[in-house]
Design a protein around this nucleic acid. Sequence first.
DNA 1: CAGCGTAATTTTGAATTCATAATTAAGTCA
DNA 2: TGACTTAATTATGAATTCAAAATTACGCTG
Lengths: 231, 231
Amino acid sequence: MMHATQSVQTITRKSLHHELVDRLQTLIINAELAPGSKVPEKVLCDQFGVSRTPLREALKVLASDGLVRLEPNRGAWVTQVTEEEVEEVFPVLGALEALSGELACKHITDPEIEEVRALHDQMMQSYENRDLDAYFSINQKIHRAILLAARNRTLTTSCQALSLRMQRARYLANMTEGRWYDAVQEHEKILEFLIARDGANLASTLLQHMDAKRASVVKWLQTREAATDVQ
Amino acid sequence: MMHATQSVQTITRKSLHHELVDRLQTLIINAELAPGSKVPEKVLCDQFGVSRTPLREALKVLASDGLVRLEPNRGAWVTQVTEEEVEEVFPVLGALEALSGELACKHITDPEIEEVRALHDQMMQSYENRDLDAYFSINQKIHRAILLAARNRTLTTSCQALSLRMQRARYLANMTEGRWYDAVQEHEKILEFLIARDGANLASTLLQHMDAKRASVVKWLQTREAATDVQ
DNA sequence: CAGCGTAATTTTGAATTCATAATTAAGTCA
DNA sequence: TGACTTAATTATGAATTCAAAATTACGCTG
């Protein structure tokens, strides 16, 4: 039985609101706060052992990032990942990842490339083992490593904010066997172009990769929507 | 004489914090809150006739947008536009504007094109009159019109957030006669490609336009920095 | 007992209060 | 006078309080 979890111990790191932004993000991404549901202010205050003030500050920030929606006098609601939103966010994310690829080729060091190669190999292992959770986790690390190699903090921040919004959907989206295979092929090319420091080709591969992801997520959302309609 | 300004009348629109985000953004962009200066919490509360709670909520949001920096136990400070930041933000803005151009060509209607053309003509008039303020203002409207024609709210939001951060710098940056001429030429091409609905060329022109702006702003910052050093 | 209107309760938004950290001012000693 | 210490003041971060709005519960009417 679980006992004395993190919920009990008081938060002290930097500022309360900053810590709370992180924690709430995690709760939302892991769907522990379900999409479309109301954010239970009081419950969370009790859970985190904080007053409403810093919690509400955090909610304002999350709202500006699009993770929650504030309804006047009705509180905060966890946003849904809609098809419309996916169709909007992925193209933007594609443009940013393409840029990150281009910049990464200019700035990445040999040890950093080695790091990506190692992650890539690990990811392939996860693919062989059909371990989707591990695959997703490593996949994200690869994209993040390229992003960091781009040496542009603004780009990193923007990308991550949008990524977060999609992460819920991507996490839930079971890829088809065919899509998974294609994604793996795309990643082979990504690694190849990164090693060659071929910015233009890496950029266009990443763009294409994102567009394929978009299509995959949309397809899954449509399936689910149809299922919900029948239900 | 001005009297009974906005500062007196109480704020009521939507939520206080949202209104305050807008107002503070304006103050920062117009440098009424000087870059590098401390955000005077109490003064602003008095000015707006609100308590510290909603003001501080707004500051958290502005901090996540990079307009202010929160120092633990030392309050909020208006961020400076540094050369480093400009070198980071403009490439990202370039990628996003390029995307907006591409999408705009797909979705823009004839009346919308007419609107841009009208703005363009107005801007040329401002150029002839050497009215920099009017030029900047119309310039922004053109970029915004293209952005809206892209039909992607996420893109709009992302672009505007980054634009805001640069606006202070751009507003202050006096263009050289030569740069101004070049910018006008670029805008001629932008209009041309938009009318032709030539997405690829519009995208690359906008990208180039942004890079030129970046260079111009950096140059100006360096001049100013040198001046400050001597001072 | 279904539908409507009213009262009690809960929740929200924002002001106020309070403890603590940071800054400023005052006082001490060389 | 000028550096250093310590006390007073102020500002910050967060909890608490309070008024207003929304939700729920209750009772009335047909």
